[in-house]
């Protein structure tokens, strides 16, 4: 449209043409970056998730009792002495490396590394195929940590010796 020659359609002067875009609810092909109302669309999903989570907790709490051993006794160390599962990987490291490495440098390094991650990884891509180094590094640490957790949790018995979990169970929650 030129500025000097106004377009006339059906006796009306046309000021501009806007591409047709029906309201979100009526369009056939919803797109990822459409804006939708949080209430009710997101809220109802969050409510369902919340109920499901509470249901899981309820079932677990009804079926399994939290452990309570004998009263604390500073003169007897139980054997095996196992940490809760989320520290099992750390305990497994401690059984194999010097405490400065396994107890200070490794956990400290992991936390610092995670904190610094967004400032180290300046690659703007979000697709995994375009950030192979970051994904590979993270996956390596994640898999190693999960493996150590499983070993420390289920495969260690008295005096931190190797046991098969299907023969004797020493896992501690």
């Amino acid at each position: 449209m030129s500025d000097d020659e106004p377009t006339i359609i059906g006796n009306k002067r046309v000021l501009g043409i806007v591409p047709s875009r029906p309201p979100v609810g009526e369009r056939k092909d919803p797109r990822a970056d459409d804006q939708v109302m949080v209430w009710p669309h997101l809220l109802v999903r969050h409510a369902v998730v919340a109920v499901a989570v509470l249901l899981v907790v309820l079932v677990l709490a009804v079926l399994f009792d939290a452990p309570l051993r004998e009263i604390a006794n500073p003169t007897v160390t139980p054997n095996p002495e196992k940490a809760p599962w989320y520290f099992a990987a750390l305990q497994e490291l401690l059984a194999n490396f010097h405490p400065v490495v396994a107890g200070v440098l490794v956990p400290g390094g992991i936390v610092l590394g995670l904190l610094a991650l967004p400032y180290i990884d300046r690659n703007p891509a979000t697709a995994p195929s375009r950030r192979k180094v970051a994904v590979a590094t993270f996956t390596f640490f994640l898999v190693a940590w999960i493996a150590l957790t499983i070993v420390g949790f289920a495969f260690r018995g008295p005096s931190w010796s190797w046991v098969w979990p299907w023969q004797e169970w020493y896992g501690e929650l």
Binding site: T77, P80, S159, W160
Partner: peptide, 22 residues
């Protein structure tokens, strides 16, 4: 001196053996 568990004396072997990490 590893992680503070009490190290018990083992009569049969005649040495101290820590149950925590061996």
């Amino acid at each position: 001196p590893h992680l503070g568990c009490k190290v018990p004396w083992c009569d049969s072997s005649g040495q101290f053996e820590c149950p925590c990490h061996g």
